[in-house]
Design a protein around this nucleic acid. Sequence first.
DNA 1: AATGAATGAGTCTTCATTCAT
DNA 2: GATGAATGAAGACTCATTCAT
Lengths: 227, 227, 227, 227
Amino acid sequence: MEIDKSLPKSERILLAAADVFSRKGYMQATLDEIIEIADTGKGTVYNYFKNKDNLFYTLVSKINEPFVTALLKIEANEESPFLKLELYLKEMLDFLRTNDTLWQVLFYEMMGANRGWYFIHDYATKENRLVVKWGAGPTQEEAERVSRYSELIGSSFRILENIMQEGVDTGVFKPSPENKGVHYAARHLYGGVAMAVFFGNDREESSATVAKIIADRFLFGFAKSAK
Amino acid sequence: MEIDKSLPKSERILLAAADVFSRKGYMQATLDEIIEIADTGKGTVYNYFKNKDNLFYTLVSKINEPFVTALLKIEANEESPFLKLELYLKEMLDFLRTNDTLWQVLFYEMMGANRGWYFIHDYATKENRLVVKWGAGPTQEEAERVSRYSELIGSSFRILENIMQEGVDTGVFKPSPENKGVHYAARHLYGGVAMAVFFGNDREESSATVAKIIADRFLFGFAKSAK
Amino acid sequence: MEIDKSLPKSERILLAAADVFSRKGYMQATLDEIIEIADTGKGTVYNYFKNKDNLFYTLVSKINEPFVTALLKIEANEESPFLKLELYLKEMLDFLRTNDTLWQVLFYEMMGANRGWYFIHDYATKENRLVVKWGAGPTQEEAERVSRYSELIGSSFRILENIMQEGVDTGVFKPSPENKGVHYAARHLYGGVAMAVFFGNDREESSATVAKIIADRFLFGFAKSAK
Amino acid sequence: MEIDKSLPKSERILLAAADVFSRKGYMQATLDEIIEIADTGKGTVYNYFKNKDNLFYTLVSKINEPFVTALLKIEANEESPFLKLELYLKEMLDFLRTNDTLWQVLFYEMMGANRGWYFIHDYATKENRLVVKWGAGPTQEEAERVSRYSELIGSSFRILENIMQEGVDTGVFKPSPENKGVHYAARHLYGGVAMAVFFGNDREESSATVAKIIADRFLFGFAKSAK
DNA sequence: AATGAATGAGTCTTCATTCAT
DNA sequence: GATGAATGAAGACTCATTCAT
């Protein structure tokens, strides 16, 4: 990979990091390879980023930002929940197709290596609450790390929930059984889209087409006729 | 974790490995911790397993076997595709709830480290074909590794495809637009279930209930009425 | 430095460590130099010692042991405090002359790098009590480290105090002004001997002779006649 | 720590250096922390001081100066050696209590890293002479460094020797056995005071009181009666 | 004179793998 | 078969020093 030498160091490092983290994952990515590609010194990386984790987080955080902005715009517009959902999915497909490998890593880092504890988003307080099932629980550092990553994913995920909830509230979408909220259905849709992209790297259909199909199937079902 | 000392060494090692890989993921799991739990020597591990990767693969492979057997039985029975789908989902939920962390790792190892190349399952030859988009492609070792892991996931995934295809063929499920096959929809459903489990560690509802809900939503849609 | 290759690895490492720590001090000593001299692999060091600090501590601890044993024997014998004091000093001189550089490092590590906090030995509970004058205080790790080193020095220092106190109790030594105990005088004597050895590397006089002189001057004064 | 911004840069750097070296010791002190406190640029430090070592030396050298001036004044006055000794000790106690950590570092730097070679002060030529017992000896840089630091300590130490020698010459202090000079006794007293301060951070008694006690004990002994 | 971005040599530490017993 | 002592390649991170502006 070649990086434009005229860019400032910090950007060159981020570009190189994107490349390496995508190919190697978090653990196997090495700073040596990153500085080799960024054509910079090792110390320079540590002038801009506190450590490896901070470099990775800064990177995905930066990429995530315009994505969330676009989604918020979709959520805020005046269209029907049907169309909003489709627009959301198209946006998400475009985003994941561009950042597939990096987001695989992010998903994994968010979920992985967790012993007996996890975070649950408390919709009342809007905070992530630590639940320790057993064991000693995470160190503060581990907890913060996972929490940060959860928050990143959550920032786009909750917009999907909002759109779906709007549909339920306005009576066009089915409520969940026993009115449990849309969390589970949203999780399923969100995760399904992500995995479908991660799984298959084919890009034969445009994201608009695929979004339309997914939305259609999700809303009106895979069965030929209603029960 | 306590392991039955009367078991043969190789099994004790696998049990210990299951424990450690589940908690730590692949990279962060150490052989030192595994042999500590298995109460055996480090050399012994290398007598039974070629290396760390082979140990992990043997482990997930062994766990996967009865799962696939159960799915094959569901596929083979005489029920309607509707019920088969529900049974499949219940089986999958039970399985993933039991092996969530281990399968997170497996998914990641299967997808990860794949920039510029990937595998496509050729439904005709039933083999995984390597597609190199750009770059040097994987080393033979990398390729074999990813291929093996893909095959593991694929073994359960293709059964879902078969059930869905059966529904399409018998006219109860909608065919894909332009008759492209059920791959994309299957990927979406399969991935969605997996992510929903990986994401949320809540087990409030029984897997049977959840399977019923997912199947219902998947088949008949999230919208209140058909278009 | 040449090390007997027939010795077990752990001993070779300790011998090499003694050499390097003596010459370089704690911070500037490198494991690379130690393994070079011990003619062993870097991993081997970490099989025997948890980390650099533990290696250093194990080393000085091991050296300190027979020294304290010898001092305890002196404390326990039936001689007069006068003679005990002289014997103690001779023993200490012999010890410090042998281990001068290593003990300089130990003294420094015990005292140095302390921000606003220090340990005071509580003679009642026989424990080291942390006193934080200002600032955040040490991390637990720092505290334990310094405490361990303090304890090492303290093990020989308190024997001197005991001997001096015995002299006061039996009426042959002057009590401290306002009966404050012998701590200050002991500190002065102990530190004075240490510094005298650290300062001047001359070994012209035998330790027995020097011990006699120090004891004489300490007991009967430097002035020609009493006031 | 706040530093007066109106002071010239070089002084602000020295003040900041005093703070950091005191708290962290030589090795663990970083220029980053120093410039942070001095509120200056890193390059500026190197405009005024050749390197880290030179900064440290300039600092302690500057602090040492008024101390030595005060001691010289004591040496020069018309009082008895008894009183001079007491005044010297009070001055030293005051000084060390103020600069304890910094002087610990200085003592250590002076003594440390000296295996196989050391300096002896030649009282005739008033120069430090290098004695190589074995090994290659120090590099010129090492030698100069240790020599400079030795000279710093020596500047105050030799005044104590002078006072004691004056007492011997005028017949009020005991000469050393075989007329070897007061070096050893001075070393013992000087080192003892230093260590007593470094060891115990208690400041319960005023330096005047402590000086009186030390002088009394040193001159007239710890034993209740002369032999 | 003042600055601070850039550097890379240097260090501790980890851990999969080997092999002699 | 079973073992575990020994290994060294690899990797994150630090920090004194330089030098162009």
